[in-house]
């Protein structure tokens, strides 16, 4: 009962913070500059980790397909086709979002938490700055705009990695590409983008809430950063399940 009460209290506080955060920025020029900066640190700086993970997982997915679907009745394009479906529908939008939750959520929570405990947020508030909007909104917009680009990149790199993995295991490039192109539907990509947008919102808002409302000292920064990663990951998985049921 107490846990339920705490959950609803936290959820209420989260919604109130988001209400403040989504207010019109006090200075649009500064907002744009901050958003570009956040795109750099949350998005562009995540490109290497996204590429590395995508290429290896893409290769592993195709190798597993080849090893587990060895039957003469299966057409040879099946490996490319199944890998494309797996990468576009689940691996890239969900697993990469979990990786981004680990990297970006901890970064957002620890940054805001450090600003909170060193009274930087108080200093801004005393100046008359709407700190929720100034600090949180650019991060949310940066994630919403850049994460879909990372996911498109992840799909592309994953398919290339799959090609390498397949060819190393005897799959011809022609059949792999044929499978990738077969019955391609944009609906899958649209679904992946919607899911990524929802995940971006989850990561940026939960992490911002954890950091912004932090109380205590430096130990709390670590605790809240961990909570931000764990909670956003759990919510991503729950929403993923709901969306899969809803869209298919």
């Amino acid at each position: 009962m107490r846990m339920l009460k705490n959950f609803f209290m936290e959820f209420g506080a989260y919604l109130l913070l988001m209400k403040e955060a989504f207010k019109k920025p006090q200075n649009m020029h500064i907002f744009k500059r901050k958003m570009i900066y956040e795109m750099q640190v949350l998005g562009v700086d995540s490109i290497p980790i996204v590429c590395v993970i995508s290429i290896f997982i893409g290769a592993a997915v195709v190798i597993q397909m080849i090893l587990n679907l060895q039957n003469p009745i299966y057409p040879s394009w099946i490996y490319g086709f199944a890998s494309r479906k797996a990468l576009i529908l689940e691996f890239s939008p969900t697993v990469i979002s979990l990786i981004l939750a680990g990297k970006c959520a901890s970064m957002i929570a620890s940054e805001l938490g450090s600003q909170r405990i060193s009274e930087q947020i108080d200093a801004m508030e005393v100046m008359g700055v709407n700190t929720a909007s100034y600090l949180i909104l650019p991060k949310i917009f940066a994630c919403l705009l850049f994460f879909p680009l990372l996911i498109v990149l992840s799909i592309f790199i994953g398919l290339i990695g799959g090609g390498f993995g397949g060819m190393a295991n005897g799959l011809s490039a022609f059949h792999y590409v044929e499978g990738i192109r077969l019955e391609f539907t944009t609906y899958d990509v649209v679904y992946a983008m919607i899911k990524t947008g929802v995940n971006a919102l989850i990561i940026s808002t939960i992490a911002s809430y954890r950091g912004y409302t932090m109380k205590g000292g430096s130990v709390e920064v670590g605790i809240q950063s961990t909570k931000a990663v764990v909670q956003s990951s759990v919510v991503i998985m729950i929403i993923n399940l709901l969306m899969t049921n809803l869209f298919f």
């Binding site: 200075n27 500064i30 600003q115 060193s118 009274e119 930087q120 200093a123 100046m127 008359g128």
Partner: peptide, 30 residues
């Protein structure tokens, strides 16, 4: 609050900005 200025115990300078940007912050904002 736009009429207030406050000096915090530990300074509370914005550590991601240089000194010029710190001092310019309230002017640039409003």
């Amino acid at each position: 609050r736009k009429e207030m200025g406050m000096v915090f115990q530990a300074g509370a300078l914005f550590d991601s900005m240089n000194i010029e940007e710190n001092v310019m912050f309230p002017i640039r904002m409003f």
